[in-house]
Amino acid sequence: MTNQEIQHIITSWSDKLEFSEEESEFLNVTVPKEELYTICKQLKADTNLKFDYLFCLTGIDWGEELGVIYHLESTTFRHNIVVKVKTADRENPMVDTVSDIWYTAEFHEMEVFDFFGIKFNNHPNLKRLFLPEDWEGYPLRKDYVDEINMVIK
């Protein structure tokens, strides 16, 4: 299915979606975080789309906003889509979990929580995965400072 057709199907679900194909090889859709869970659920359930394979889940720090990027593929049709969600709250960022839609998200969301501090609502086991429990700060954020261990070139 082409990107236009996918966009056509998804547009009808909500009027708050932003589509973009610039500067990327995939179709990007930015979703408001309140609608993330329902949109994701529909993306997997829709019989014409069947995005059943979440192959990459990336946390990202945009400077002011924190975001999560979901790379999705359908194992039946082999088309891709990239879902993006952003949150401006840096103190207590919250995004809904998708770990009950794609089980692989459970581990990847733990990794994102560990390095970016984004909390995932309804996540079954949200804890620090790599770093120790008492680690302060979130290392992959751009404003993280560690004067001893980080070497700036």
């Binding site: 059943d52 394979y53 979440l54 192959f55 194992t75 794609w102 089980y103 692989t104």
Partner: peptide
Amino acid sequence: EDAISFGAS
């Protein structure tokens, strides 16, 4: 189904 959902490859 689990293999796909868990992102196994």
